[in-house]
């Protein structure tokens, strides 16, 4: 089913506002003209490292180790990406090549 136009627009508006809020809230709570508390500044230095780790887990959250394919294609692809990236340090090669490699894995070797 689809919603009537005005309802669909309202849904999109509300979702856009909610999205913006989650992105803007820290900046609104700690505006540039006010002194930011030391603890928040410290968080600003630690969180980038912790957050990328968290995002990585978030991307893999639906991978099941118990059922087939046991997370194997993901593990193989991530190890390959790590090796290639440490070797060449070329983001495009690592990301593009890694994705194609993963697609081949899940389409040809782990398809079932």
């Amino acid at each position: 089913m689809t919603l009537p136009i005005h309802q669909a627009l309202l849904i999109i508006l509300v979702s856009a506002v909610a999205t913006f809020l989650t992105r803007a809230l820290p900046f609104l709570l700690f505006p540039p003209h006010k002194k930011t508390p030391a603890f928040i500044l410290y968080l600003g230095k630690v969180l980038p490292f912790a957050t990328i780790g968290m995002l990585l887990v978030y991307c893999l959250k639906d991978v099941s180790i118990i059922t087939w394919s046991h997370g194997l294609p993901e593990a193989i692809a991530l190890l390959t990406i790590t090796a290639v990236h440490l070797w060449k340090r070329n983001i495009l090669l690592s990301v593009g090549g890694g994705t194609v490699f993963y697609m081949i894995l899940v389409q040809c070797f782990f398809s079932v």
């Binding site: 990585l56 990236h85 690592s94």
Partner: peptide
């Protein structure tokens, strides 16, 4: 396109390694 969404995982992995 099966598996194509892995591109984001790959990107985060690479950034993780650089960090």
């Amino acid at each position: 396109s099966k598996g194509i969404d892995f591109v984001m995982t790959a990107l985060f992995m690479v950034i993780f390694l650089d960090q």
